[in-house]
């Protein structure tokens, strides 16, 4: 039974080897950190979009909630940053629980309502009247616990967790039940699947990954503002990576994020608009010509995608 997990496990080990090995040859740690961040977010979004079909345009809301949840716990409760990462994940899950009713909405309506929810959350966190708790628009300073190397490996840990979750969904009956819900809710529930519970679990797992990613990001960056951790760009990047790579596999989002984020970093960083233009055109072309992403080409060639 465990044998079917081997290909996914291979992919995970390869990624771990890359991010442990690369810093010895390539000293731009912050690029590698951000790359891992987007790999983790792409897998996190894959959990909800890839397996259940809900496209969370407000995915950044969980990221921001995690960044703030973790940072506030670290500064106000004086807990260790690693514990703060966990708190960040939990805060994002709680945010997800509040938003569960949105799952009643279908397709584009869910996407736009989720976008609105993330914006609302941003405006609450950035609101000057909450300055005592969130520092309002003035941002968070975690430089007292700053530790780049620890943050780097914490990010790797979150990434491994995210990949392992997707590997589980890719190979388990629970993952199969989510795919069934995505295709036809009625058929899934007549197979005995508790649709509402299953999709809520996927939603919270997805939130947990984004929340922990946000908390590690806050810790690694040390100083951040609500406009950074609630930036719509985070959702946009993640969605583009997942669409480009392909959904419902471990490898698809990894391929998408590795290729596109590296390109973004090496070409686009000085004038991000070139990349916005490129991404925009890429999305249009993907929808028209390759709606299932790059891995669908492999699948057509009968290659097994872990």
């Amino acid at each position: 039974m465990l044998k079917k997990y081997f290909p996914s496990l291979g992919v995970i080990l390869a990624i771990v080897a890359i991010f442990i090995g690369l810093p010895h040859f390539y000293d731009n740690q912050s690029f590698l950190f951000n790359l891992m961040l987007y790999l983790a977010l792409a897998e996190g979004l894959n959990i909800i979009y890839g397996f259940t079909g809900y496209l969370p345009f407000g995915y950044v809301g969980f990221f921001g909630a995690g960044a703030y949840g973790g940072a506030i716990a670290i500064t106000l409760l004086h807990i260790s940053p690693l514990l703060g990462v966990l708190v960040g994940g939990v805060v994002a899950v709680l945010t997800g629980v509040i938003l569960i009713p949105l799952l009643r909405l279908s397709g584009a309506y869910f996407a736009i309502a989720n976008l609105a929810a993330s914006q609302a959350l941003y405006l609450v966190v950035a609101n000057p009247s909450l300055e005592k708790i969130t520092q309002g628009p003035y941002g968070i300073d975690l430089s007292s616990v700053y530790n780049a190397n620890a943050g780097y490996f914490a990010m790797l840990g979150v990434l491994v967790f995210a990949m392992a979750l997707v590997a589980y969904l890719r190979n388990s009956n629970f993952g199969l039940s989510l795919l069934a819900i995505k295709e036809d809710r009625v058929t899934a529930s007549l197979a005995g699947v508790n649709v509402i519970r299953a999709r809520s679990i996927a939603w919270m797992l997805s939130a947990f990954v984004a929340g922990m990613s946000g908390a590690v990001f806050g810790w690694y960056t040390a100083v951040f503002y609500p406009s950074t951790v609630f930036s719509l760009d985070v959702s946009v990047f993640t969605i583009v990576f997942v669409l480009f790579g392909g959904i419902a596999s471990v490898a698809g989002p990894l391929i998408g994020a590795l290729i596109l984020y590296s390109m973004y970093n090496f070409i686009g960083i000085s004038t991000p608009q070139y990349f916005q233009l490129f991404y925009g055109l890429l999305i249009v072309l993907l929808v028209l010509f390759l709606p299932d992403g790059v891995v669908s080409l492999l699948k057509k060639g009968k290659v097994y995608v872990p």
Binding site: L55, A108, L281, V287
Partner: peptide
């Protein structure tokens, strides 16, 4: 929805 989002970015 996704396609027009791409158009928006462009």
């Amino acid at each position: 929805f996704i396609l027009f989002f791409g158009v928006s970015q462009v």
